[in-house]
């Protein structure tokens, strides 16, 4: 766990995320991209629009190409639904449980 803590970068957002906060989101993700494992914590985000999800998608694709592990933590059913619109749910390691997200990031055999 301690090894994970040291290599894990948590990007946390709070409040509604829409196009007006896109630069903030892009900047925060950009700063975290070098970490081997990245947890994008949206548990405090009640709403995120499609532009923000697009940023997450790009980030995820880039992270995958660079061999990084990424997990997205979501508590809001609204965001889950909007991610569903965006067709992201299937592509994206989305979790509503922090422990499961961390397990995914450690790479241990988690289902």
């Amino acid at each position: 766990m301690s090894e994970l803590e040291s290599s894990l970068e948590v990007v946390r957002f709070a409040g509604e995320l829409d196009i007006s906060r896109r630069d903030e989101v892009t900047g925060a993700l950009e700063r975290a991209k070098a970490a081997p494992a990245i947890l994008v914590d949206l548990s405090e985000v009640p709403y995120a629009d499609s532009t923000v999800l697009a940023e997450l998608l790009r980030f995820h694709a880039q992270a995958q190409a660079n061999g990084r592990r990424i997990a997205v933590l979501i508590h809001s059913p609204q965001i889950a639904r909007i991610m569903d619109y965006a067709g992201v749910s299937a592509t994206f390691p989305v979790f509503d449980d922090r422990g499961a997200a961390l397990t995914h990031l450690t790479g241990t055999n988690a289902t």
Partner: peptide, 11 residues
């Protein structure tokens, strides 16, 4: 049913 990423995001 629906699905598919937004256009202009991912190659």
């Amino acid at each position: 049913q629906h699905g598919g990423l937004p256009l202009g995001v991912l190659e």
